[in-house]
């Protein structure tokens, strides 16, 4: 039903996110360990949803968002930003840069599952 790109520099974190989302049938997963890798994969393949970390070694999630939203074909791709920084400024920055949803770590498996389900159920092109 959908290919999800999970972007986080921590392997354990990626595995945890995937483990959470496995409860939703029909999803397959691609991992990216850095912002650059994410941008590269997004440019070469079609994904239905991205789970994106903000703090990464090369370029951060905000830069990834800015770049992605600047691309016509990626403009409406659902992106869930997941970060350890839960302050309002980060939230505002991420949402301004084009995040569809904003979640702070720690989150529960149920929480991320329901966010993903909602986003995937939206008809394409619907307002985020």
């Amino acid at each position: 039903m959908g290919e999800i790109l999970v972007v986080d520099d921590s392997k354990v974190m990626r595995e945890m996110i995937i483990a959470c989302l496995r409860a939703q049938p029909g999803l397959s997963f691609t991992q990216a360990a850095s912002g650059l890798e994410a941008i590269e994969k997004l440019s070469l393949k079609t994904f239905q949803l991205v789970v994106l970390d903000l703090n990464m070694p090369d370029i951060g999630g905000i830069e990834v968002l800015e770049f992605v939203r600047g691309q016509d074909k990626l403009r409406s791709l659902p992106i869930i930003v997941v970060t350890t920084r839960g302050d309002d400024a980060s939230r505002a920055t991420a949402l301004a840069a084009g995040a569809s949803r904003f979640m702070t770590k720690p989150f529960t498996p149920e929480k991320i599952l329901s966010e993903v389900r909602e986003l995937l159920e939206q008809p394409a092109g619907a307002p985020r």
Binding site: S10, K11, V12, E15, M16, A19, C20, R22, A23, P109, E110, L113
Partner: peptide, 16 residues
Amino acid sequence: SDVVDLAEFRTAFVVE
């Protein structure tokens, strides 16, 4: 019941 228990990731957490 199909939801994962994140505590299972503690070993992996220790390694990383």
